[in-house]
């Protein structure tokens, strides 16, 4: 039975986390909200403008276009990485040296810094000297990601899939490894096929790790900045300019702190909403299945 002193000790133990979250998350967020309602000219000169920056940002056509591109990119990447990651995880041996070796190999892309990933693919996809670009051109396809928007998009998605599918593989492998062999034996006795084993044995056990994988990838892809910046610089034109790059142009390029802060708050709310909706839908689905 819990006693009062124990409960107080628990509060003390949580306190460091509360302080870290407050100073790393809440205080910066409050600062951004403060900036978003002011026109800041210099350190000492600023004017309260209410919701004007929000109104401007919400009616900005460039933001609408960047948002649309962002959603298409994020859900395309997710739609490829999730099934591919599960497929690869299912193909990996569950134990032994081969499993360890393959897991390490799978994890390598995750260890590459973001700007290096962009640089690797910038060179790799070049039509003249890059292995991928030259190979595609060698097939008779006029591939040039710096000139053709479709090629730029395909290169960006391929880069993201190369970089992040490993995360789904590792999480999927962890989920699959936790399934007791008795489940497979029971499925075998019942004469279940591969699809039925996946649907009724593996998928329910993978749900928790897949939820983590989906949320991590969704949040990450919605915030993607460095790789597209290095690879395409938002081009050709603005065809691969996503929300974060548009935001950086306003905040750092134009140094419009008020509009950039309003944009940031909208951006934050969008990611929060999408992740919360996704989490709620998956949890509600799990509750329905368990009932």
């Amino acid at each position: 039975m819990r006693t009062k002193p124990e409960r107080q000790a628990a509060w003390l133990m949580v306190l460091p986390v509360v302080l870290v979250v407050a100073f790393s998350g809440v205080v910066p967020l409050m600062t951004v909200v403060n900036y978003s309602v002011q026109d800041i000219l210099d350190v000492d000169t600023r004017f309260f403008v209410g919701f004007d920056w929000y109104r401007d940002a919400l009616r900005d056509v460039r933001l609408h276009e960047a948002l649309w591109r962002q959603l298409v990119f994020s859900f395309t990447a997710l739609a490829i990485e999730l099934p591919l990651g599960i497929l690869v995880a299912r193909c990996l041996p569950r134990q032994g040296r081969a499993a360890s070796l393959l897991l390490v190999l799978c994890a390598i892309p995750l260890l590459v810094p973001l700007n290096v990933v962009g640089t690797i693919w910038q060179i790799f996809a070049r039509g003249d000297i890059g292995m991928l670009g030259a190979a595609i051109n060698g097939l008779g396809i006029d591939y040039n990601y710096t000139r053709e928007p479709l090629h730029a998009w395909m290169t960006l998605v391929a880069m993201d899939v190369w970089h992040w599918t490993s995360l789904v593989v590792l999480l999927g492998f962890a989920g699959l490894s936790s399934i007791p062999p008795a489940y497979y034996q029971a499925a075998d006795l019942d004469g279940a096929g591969r699809w039925q084993v996946f649907r009724h044995v593996e998928l329910p056990h993978l749900r928790a790790v897949l939820l983590i994988a989906v949320l991590l990838r969704l949040m990450d892809s919605l915030m993607i900045y460095t790789e597209p910046f290095v690879l395409t610089g938002g081009g050709p034109g603005n065809t691969t300019t996503f929300l974060s790059q548009h935001l950086a142009t306003i905040a750092v390029g134009q140094f419009d702190l008020g509009p950039a802060a309003a944009f940031s708050v909208i951006y934050f709310l969008l990611i929060l909403l999408l992740c919360w909706l996704f989490h709620t839908l998956v949890v509600a689905g799990a509750e329905r299945d368990d009932a």
């Binding site: 205080v27 409050m30 600062t31 909200v33 403060n34 900036y35 309602v37 002011q38 800041i40 600023r46 309260f48 209410g50």
Partner: peptide, 12 residues
């Protein structure tokens, strides 16, 4: 943190 009265009231 460049506080204004409305934002201070909001967070309070």
């Amino acid at each position: 943190m460049a506080w204004t009265l409305p934002t201070a009231l909001f967070f309070s």
